[in-house]
Computed example of a mutant assay.
Amino acid sequence: MTDATAVADIDDTARPDLTQRIREAILAAEFAPHQRLIEADLSERYDASRAAVRTALMNLAGEGLVERLPNRGARVRAITVEEAVEIVEVRIGLETLVARKAAENLTPEGAATLAALRAEIERTAAAGDLVSYSRANQELDRLLRAYSGHGTASTLLERLHAQSARHQFRLAFAPGRAAQSAPEHVAIIDAVLAQDPDAAERATRDHLSGIVEVLRGMG
């Protein structure tokens, strides 16, 4: 190995976006549950070194998206319905905290952004545009984490959302689900816009408790 190659490998391993790119591919169902993730194939796909791919897979294993197999590399980890229920139950505590903090810390700029997103959620749900509706819901989750200013809860929630993303995707496309969940999301937004922490917590808890019941019905 030349010095130039060694430097390239070091720089490549340090690239922070490779983990994110593979994570997004898993969440977008470009890799199926239990599908093997072969380092050589990923290296070619992402134009990255094997060392960088190995590091990214280790990162994703730490997040629960990938599982390492003894002497067999890695594969996409499948989350059972039972695990998904447990994840949502943990999210209830964290997301109610985040909603409270977002209501307490909301700025005029944040309020304007949330109001626009509220309209987008109602529009896409009414139009039956489930792809855009799902994206709007993901953006709501992201904004509430950002507005809460609670770094620890936000970091934990990002990992939990990633682990249960496949089940969230199935929920979003279940018949009649958008008509039920859209008013729940609107209620959360309205409570945050009113800067009412108690109402924000209550609306968030009601929404997530409903998700738990739907997931249990999928088991």
Rank of each mutant, 00 (worst) to 15 (best):
D11F: 12
R166E: 15
E104I: 08
N71R: 15
A194V: 07
V81D: 09
E63I: 08
E109P: 04
E83T: 10
R166M: 13
Y46F: 13
A78M: 15
N105V: 00
G62I: 04
E39T: 15
R170L: 11
T152S: 10
L37C: 09
D3Q: 11
A162C: 13
R142C: 00
E109A: 15
D11C: 09
A28V: 00
A84W: 09
A125T: 09
N59K: 10
T55E: 11
N59T: 10
V66L: 11
E86Q: 14
R68P: 01
D190T: 05
E104Q: 11
A191T: 08
L157W: 04
D9K: 05
H161M: 12
P108I: 09
A119V: 10
I87C: 04
Q35W: 02
E30D: 14
A179D: 00
H207M: 12
A28R: 12
S154F: 06
F173M: 03
R177F: 01
H167R: 01
A125L: 00
L27P: 08
L60V: 02
G210Q: 11
R202Y: 06
T80G: 14
P183T: 06
D198K: 09
Q138P: 08
E139S: 11
R142I: 02
A84N: 05
R91H: 03
I92M: 03
A116S: 12
D190M: 06
R50W: 00
L160R: 00
A146L: 14
A103H: 09
M58E: 11
R142A: 08
H150L: 08
E83F: 08
M1P: 12
E139V: 12
A8T: 00
D17M: 10
G151N: 15
A174E: 08
V186L: 06
G64Y: 02
A127W: 08
S164N: 11
L208A: 04
L60D: 05
L157S: 07
S209Y: 02
T55V: 11
Q195A: 05
D198I: 10
T155Y: 15
R118S: 03
D206P: 07
L156I: 06
